[in-house]
Structures are given as C-alpha cells and as structure tokens.
Design a protein around this nucleic acid. Structure first.
Lengths: 136, 136
DNA sequence: AAGCGCTGCTTAGGATGCTAAGCACACTCC
DNA sequence: GGAGTGTGCTTAGCATCCTAAGCAGCGCTT
C-alpha cells in the first residue's frame, strides 16, 4: 500500500482539481481499488488506464470512458465532461426564429428524419440550379 | 413544379444518415466549400479532415470538432454528439430535444422567396409519398 | 495555351487514447 | 520459507484522431 493519501478530500467540493486528482479523490472516498472500479464498469475502464487518468498521463479521456466512471462513482457525467475539457451542449433555448417567421415550421416538424435528409439534399439541388453563383 | 426527379439523385435519401452523410448534406445545403467551412471554424476544422469525416474515414470526431461544425452550420451541438455516437449528459429522456434540432435554419434563410415556394411544394410531395397514416 | 484560383480528395506522420500484459511491493495462510 | 492474492503502477503496441502538405481536375481570364 504505497500511497493511501492522507488528505480527506471531498470530491464534491473540489474546485479546480485536475480531472485525475478529482477522480482519485472520488475513488478513495468510495474505498474502491482500481480493479474494483474496472469491475464496476464492466471492464469498460481497465485498472491500468484508470491509473493513467488519475496520474495525469491521460488528460482527456473520451466521453464514453467518463460516462462509465460517472456511473461507477455516482458522479455527474456533465461535470466530468467539463473537467476533462469537453464542451457540454447547453440544451435550453429552442426558439430564435427571425427571418423565418413566415415559414411554416410545423411542416418541418412533421417530417421524419429520413425525409429531412432528403429535404436538405433538395435545398442543395435548388442552390445548384441557380444562375451562376458558384458556391459563394 | 419543376421537380426534375431530385429524389433518386439524392446521395443518401433516407434512413439513419451516418454522421458524415449528414454533415455533407448540411454543408451542401448551405452552399459552402470544404475550405469555406475551414475558414468559418477559424481553422479549427481543416478541409482535409472535414473531407475525411464526410467520407466516413473518420467516424467519431472529438466533441470539440463537432462543436465547431455545429457553430459553422448552425446545427445543434448535442445532436451532432449523438450522431457521432457520444453520450450526452441529459440523455435519459432520449429523443425529445427540439424536433428541429438537427435542421440548419440558415439554409432556409438563404433561399429566395421563390425557392422557398418550391421547397414547400417538395415538402408536400414528401408527405404525399407517405403511406397515408399520420400518427407515427 | 498558360496561368490562376477554386474544388474535393488523399496521404505521411505525429499525437493521443486505450488495451493487454506484466512489474514490484505488501499482506495473508499453510 | 513459499504460495497465493491484492494493491498501485508501468510499458509495449495498436487504433484512432487530426494536421500539413500535396495531388488532379475544373472553370475562368488574359
């Protein structure tokens, strides 16, 4: 047991901790070993790799990895994303219309995904049909 | 309507578009060149790399890349994340972000009045092509 | 024709995520 | 002592992302 750090660091209050330090605190708080976490994530995060993350050898794990860790530690996934330096979609506003006020949006809403794809292609087709402008 | 059989010519037409095909449609609808997009993203996404994404050579671009593309095309960032196979924070309630989330409104804004008319006709055409029931 | 600029596309190579395997140390239990 | 198990940690190597540089083709201008 080489390290068992002494600092009782509550992972929830960590302000500017690096991702690795934060995850290490979290694991320590839960009293889990590296391999226990590997087990918890269903082998999605191997113990060696987790060690790399905690030590800072790996600085930006993929969202998928972070998700599994969030699950294993019961942490907030979005928070982990931010700590890893990923952008998080701010999923709020749905309404800025503007020029399109006249356009019947519900017509679009009724389309299926595939139909919307076709529509995009048709828009491209309309543009390609225009007199001379090549791409703009 | 002019029509000219735009449907069969569609390179992707239907179903669940791959990320690449979707991004290609979006770019095409906006009438942007690969290098124009590179410019728009402030060189964050190079033209060659974008080509790789569209062609499927690169299947899972980083969230950061997707963010820049979402900005450039005025698409929903979260939607792109999902299409790229990344997990999205609040995705417990799966499908119900804005239905129009994936649609590039800019593409509509740039159309002329007449073209918008044709587009509406085409939407009507799409709907008429369906197997009648409107529930879905 | 020659040159220019734009188009999409390819490719070598560096950087990084990520895995599988193994190391050294510490604690048992026979 | 020796075997077995658990700990954190390291490392070779592969896969993938991503960049920089370049390719050929097309249309336009002189």
């Amino acid at each position: 047991m080489t390290c068992v750090s002494a600092t009782p660091n509550s992972p929830l209050s960590a302000g500017s901790q690096s991702l690795g330090a934060y995850l290490k605190s979290a694991r320590s708080a839960l009293g889990l070993s590296l391999r226990a976490v590997e087990e918890r994530t269903g082998k999605a995060v191997t113990n060696g790799y987790l060690s790399q993350i905690e030590s800072g050898t790996v600085t930006q794990p993929s969202p998928n990895m972070l998700y599994h860790l969030a699950q294993a530690y019961d942490l907030d996934y979005g928070d982990l994303l931010v700590r890893a330096g990923h952008r998080v979609p701010h999923s709020d506003d749905t309404a800025q219309r503007g020029i399109l006020a006249g356009f019947p949006m519900h017509a679009l809403e009724e389309l299926t995904e595939g139909e919307r794809g076709e529509l995009l292609d048709y828009i491209a087709f309309l543009r390609s049909k225009r007199p001379s402008s090549r791409g703009r």
